[in-house]
Nucleic acid binder design. Sequence first.
DNA 1: GGATATTCGTACCACTCGGTATGAAAGTCC
DNA 2: GGACTTTCATACCGAGTGGTACGAATATCC
Lengths: 211, 211
Amino acid sequence: MTDSDPRPTRGRPKTLDADKVLNIALTAYWHGDPADTSVNEVCRLAGISKPSLYREFGSEDGLMRATLDTYSDRVLSDVFGILETGAGLRGTLDGLIEFASTDRRMETGCLFYKMRAGKHRLGPQTRARVEELDAAAQEAYAAFLQSCRDAGDWTGPQPVDAAARYLGEQVALAFTQRASGEDPDRIRDMLGLALSVFTVVDDDPKRKTSR
Amino acid sequence: MTDSDPRPTRGRPKTLDADKVLNIALTAYWHGDPADTSVNEVCRLAGISKPSLYREFGSEDGLMRATLDTYSDRVLSDVFGILETGAGLRGTLDGLIEFASTDRRMETGCLFYKMRAGKHRLGPQTRARVEELDAAAQEAYAAFLQSCRDAGDWTGPQPVDAAARYLGEQVALAFTQRASGEDPDRIRDMLGLALSVFTVVDDDPKRKTSR
DNA sequence: GGATATTCGTACCACTCGGTATGAAAGTCC
DNA sequence: GGACTTTCATACCGAGTGGTACGAATATCC
């Protein structure tokens, strides 16, 4: 995004590798806590000077936003992918459960949800991106559930948007528990229990579950 | 706790009201974010000097621990109270749902869960208290569920401790959503949906729900 | 070679943080 | 009154924060 690549022919050649800096910032923010990772530390880890970083990203907010974009492209896209596999209600929920609870990359939680949890600490650019991604996720969950409803795969009584909200928050909770070092098996059980409300019969005795 | 009240007869009389400071710190930590509330700000709000605060509480960690104890006595006790009313499975869960989603005092979330969410930022004393309270809550949830099971009021297939964990995390999620300004009605619906797994029939066709 | 353009890192800025040295203030004991 | 004791607040400390002024370095254009 914002491909500032007019390739100036004059001037001292740049040695700063923006992608490398982004990768380092990504792991620093992701593995630790975004709010506890300072610009100074990112510079130290990347072996660059602070003015170089500010020239490239403008501000801490700009660096965080760019990092979140990288994360979105590289990780969140997988979650959206799961929602679009068309594996049906049961299969897709199982895919979400498996990804959230046991995927190795999420061992330290989800950067997006870490940022969302500390939204008030973010700069305006990053906060706006977080809100955009949150809305997009809500949209994707809702589209998934709507397709299940249309296919007769989900007959629950909840409105689609409320159920989408619930689904998203349960997945977020699982990621947060990953970040706190909870046992993946327990997380899977809990998320499975939370999402069982979609696949289990309700009070209506004339309906029957499939499983 | 640690009633340092030998009432020295000598010396300049103290003007610092520890309870007043604790109340101010409580609302500051609770209404805002514990990690974003500095000792300087508490002093400013309380109209006292920093050395006075440090003489009374020893450190920021000591102040936070004392504040958490105050919160525990004054607020968390209500949650434990709900679990001990003996209102049965349905009644107690409804009590939890109502308290977590609509109690006015929880409009800005739960201080305990805010602290737990940022546990790595806490000092050793406060962190230890958080862990104690976490264990006590887990214990209380488990005792409640066990009593429901003994009374034949809950026939779910989950182990008691796993279900207690699930229950506690769902309540915590509701508090967190309150803190983020979510609509209480939506929170009630979501928490109700999450806890419906305890009162709804499972796959076994020979069992029947009560509701 | 010299003017120009761009990027580099050092060394700084003001600010806030948690925490404390210090001496004045205000009381009791004798 | 004077020794003693305890609490008070001002004024500081070192460390870390996000951010920048500035001059040296390194390239191309003419």
